[in-house]
Simulated assay, not measured.
Amino acid sequence: MKKKFSHINKKNQPNMVNVGNKAVTKRKAIAKATLFLGKEIVANFTDNDIITKKGPVFQTAIVAGIQAVKKTSDLIPMCHPLSINGISINIDIVDQEHLEILCTVDIEGKTGVEMEALTGATVTALTIYDMCKSISQKIIIKEVKLLEKKGGKSDYKS
């Protein structure tokens, strides 16, 4: 059976999915963003952060990512506004040139939080880019992907 797009109605028009009849379940999503910063930027980290004139990079990026998770429905038209139970964003220096961001979002609701986790990871990465671009424009947001989703119709793990 061919799968159909959920946000297109029978007349091929945009449609926000009606989740009114769905059961409230625990849902969780984890997204990852990988950044290439280069040795020049990573060398500036002390105690897992860089303090700049704009403020501490990781702390600022985490707050931006949390705000982005909460604003996902304002940014992506077909996303439902959600009452988020928890958001966790972790940034790790992977090696002399790369960072990894993990964004985990938990809710009890009628729809998933994959888009919220992906948005949180992406905005965290963009904030790091913004705060470090004065040192180098060679920064690359290499990948943003969903690692895991639990709850709803099906679970997913990459």
Rank of each mutant, 00 (worst) to 15 (best):
M16K: 14
M16G: 00
M16L: 13
M16D: 01
V17K: 04
V17L: 10
N18G: 01
N18P: 01
N18L: 01
V19S: 05
V19F: 11
V19H: 02
G20Q: 10
G20C: 01
G20R: 10
N21P: 00
N21K: 13
K22F: 13
K22D: 04
A23D: 14
A23N: 14
A23M: 09
V24K: 14
V24H: 09
T25W: 02
K26W: 02
R27K: 11
R27Q: 08
K28Q: 12
A29E: 03
A29C: 01
A29Q: 03
A29W: 03
I30W: 01
I30C: 08
A31W: 12
A31I: 12
A31Q: 13
A31H: 12
A31K: 13
K32A: 11
K32F: 04
A33C: 06
T34C: 11
T34V: 15
T34N: 14
L35S: 04
F36M: 05
L37A: 13
G38T: 10
K39N: 12
E40N: 14
I41L: 11
I41K: 02
I41H: 10
I41W: 10
V42W: 12
V42K: 14
V42H: 10
V42Y: 11
A43L: 03
N44E: 14
N44H: 12
N44Y: 07
F45W: 05
F45L: 14
T46F: 08
T46G: 00
D47V: 00
N48Y: 10
N48P: 00
N48W: 03
N48K: 13
N48E: 14
D49K: 08
I50D: 06
I50T: 04
I50F: 05
I51Q: 15
K54E: 15
G55Q: 12
G55S: 12
P56A: 15
P56Q: 15
V57M: 05
V57F: 04
V57W: 06
V57A: 06
V57I: 11
F58L: 04
Q59Y: 08
Q59A: 12
A61H: 06
A61I: 05
A61Q: 07
I62S: 01
I62D: 05
I62F: 04
I62E: 02
V63I: 15
V63P: 01
V63K: 10
A64H: 01
A64Y: 07
G65P: 12
G65K: 07
Q67K: 12
Q67V: 05
Q67L: 09
Q67A: 10
A68L: 00
A68Y: 04
A68C: 02
A68M: 00
A68S: 14
V69L: 05
V69M: 08
V69W: 05
V69P: 11
V69H: 10
K71D: 15
K71Q: 15
T72I: 07
T72Y: 09
T72W: 03
S73Q: 01
D74G: 07
D74I: 08
I76L: 12
I76E: 02
P77E: 11
P77S: 14
M78C: 11
M78E: 11
C79G: 03
C79K: 01
C79M: 01
H80I: 03
H80M: 03
H80R: 06
H80G: 08
H80Q: 03
H80K: 02
P81Y: 09
P81N: 09
P81M: 09
L82Y: 00
L82R: 01
S83E: 13
S83Q: 13
S83C: 06
S83R: 07
I84K: 09
I84R: 05
